[in-house]
Each structure stands twice: as structure tokens, then as C-alpha cells.
Simulated assay, not measured.
Amino acid sequence: MTPSSAEDPNRADLGKDPKRVSGMFDEVARGYDRTNTVLSLGNDQLWRVATTRAVAPRKGQRILDLAAGTGASSVSIARSGAEVVAADFSPGMIAEGRRRHTGIPNLSFTEADATALPFADAEFDAVTMSFGLRNVNDPKKALRELLRVTKPGGRLVVCEFSHPPSPSFNGLYRFYNDRILPVVAKTVSSNAEAYDYLNESIKDWPDQATLSSWIRDAGWTDVAYRNLSFGIVALHRARKPAR
């Protein structure tokens, strides 16, 4: 535990205690989407479009958007006419999502722990998780849970921060995260320490190939990924084996 996490009970650290992480997201829920847009220089909207296209939602399908936050990605998926369940373990995020998106009939919000999902086996045609797997204290278990609730032949899409393969670009990216992001976060976020944790968790997260191996080991097939924004983010895709 870092000194700052000892002072603030909601300052998450790399131990990823669920209560701390949930409390941290509760604190930033109201301005979360705006802050992300500023800190990502608008790239978050491009990542959302790429994720929705990879999910390829269709009317009549049932889709789980895990770690949905306030539901920005869920709304994008729901525009297809699919029934979307936006799930998150932060009550603050869920409350903010419900407040913003109550008028969308095919979108519902529920609190859920990624390592013990409150859904039946083979319930969803597709499952997706954007920038949330990194915050789970047992991501491999979460990948197995996502497999459990997906129908045979169903799709997995995980959009997550990763590691740019170019050493020169990676150096620029690290400079931005270490020097510029903290200054901007103090200006635009209600909890700048949450974005200190963001930087720490990105550094600690495995690269594209390692996450692909985790997905494969969890039981998914047809595992592949492609880099977005020069590898700052990677979009991972897979399928549940058909019966």
C-alpha cells in the first residue's frame, strides 16, 4: 500500500482491492466521461466506435457490457436495437448511468462483480469489456466468467490499454502519462489520485501477446487482437467454442 492509499480509503493501488477500486470510481462518476475525453485527446470516442464494430450487435441479441461505467459504450451498442445489460461494480457509476440514460428501453443497468457474475450460463450472444479488465483483482477468473455467461459461438471483445510496440512512440507515451497526464488530471478531475492509479495500472498491465494467452487459456478460441492508436490500446477478440 502506498502512503497516499493509506490516507485515502478510496485511493486504489495495484493490490486492486475491490472496495477501494469501486470507491474510487464512485468518486469520479459524475465527470468520468468528460475527463477521459480530455486525457485521451478525444481518442476514447474512436476506441468506442471500434469496439462497437467488433461486437457487431444486432437487433434481437442480448449483450453484456461489463465494466460499463456510466454506459457510454452501452448506449453505442444499444443503438443497434440489441438488448444491452450494462454492468459495473461501482454503485456510483451505475447510478450516474441510470440518471443519464433512463429513456433507452433496451438498456438496463446492474451492479456486478466480474469474478462472480450474477447471470445464468450461456445467457449472452456477445460480451464486451472496455478498460475494466485491468482493474479486476483476478482478471483470469473474470475471463472464465465471461466465457460461462456467453452462448456457444458467442463473441468476446475486450478493449484495454496496452503497450505500444514502437520504442520511440512508447517513450513519448510514457512521458505523457508520467509528466503531462497528472497535471491535466488535477485540472479536470474531481479526484486526480484516481488517475495516478490509472498510470500505475497501465504500466503494470501485460502486453498484447500476454493478454491474448490469458484469453486463450480461459477457454476462448479464434483469439486475435489489433492495435489502436499505435498500440496505446489493443482490441482483443475471441469466440466461445460452439457445441
Rank of each mutant, 00 (worst) to 15 (best):
V183H: 01
V21C: 03
R53T: 12
E193N: 06
V223R: 02
R226Y: 00
Y176C: 07
M24S: 08
A120H: 14
V184G: 06
A86V: 12
P164T: 08
H236V: 14
G153P: 09
A209W: 12
E83N: 14
F230P: 01
R144H: 07
G81I: 10
A192C: 10
R79P: 00
A50C: 02
G92W: 06
N43L: 15
S162Y: 09
L228K: 04
V136Q: 01
A50E: 06
L235W: 14
T115W: 09
A116H: 04
L117E: 01
F175Q: 13
V158T: 09
W214K: 05
N106K: 04
D204Y: 11
P167M: 12
L198N: 05
G231W: 03
G103E: 13
L107Y: 02
S229I: 06
F119A: 00
K203F: 12
A116Q: 10
H236R: 05
R20G: 00
R48H: 01
S76T: 12
Q45M: 10
R226E: 13
D196F: 03
A50W: 00
T52V: 13
G71N: 00
T210F: 13
L147T: 07
T128F: 07
G69S: 05
D8C: 03
L211K: 05
G71V: 04
D65C: 04
F230T: 06
A209L: 13
P152T: 05
I215W: 03
L133P: 03
R174K: 15
A78Y: 07
V188D: 00
I77V: 14
E193K: 08
R174D: 15
L133F: 02
V223N: 07
S229Q: 07
S5N: 06
R174G: 15
E200H: 08
A68H: 02
T37S: 09
A68W: 00
G97L: 09
I77D: 07
K140V: 08
G92R: 00
E145T: 02
P9W: 11
R100S: 06
I232E: 05
P165W: 12
S212L: 10
D138Y: 06
A78G: 03
P182G: 01
A56R: 08
A86W: 05
R11S: 05
M1E: 12
T115M: 04
H163C: 13
F25H: 01
R62K: 15
I180V: 14
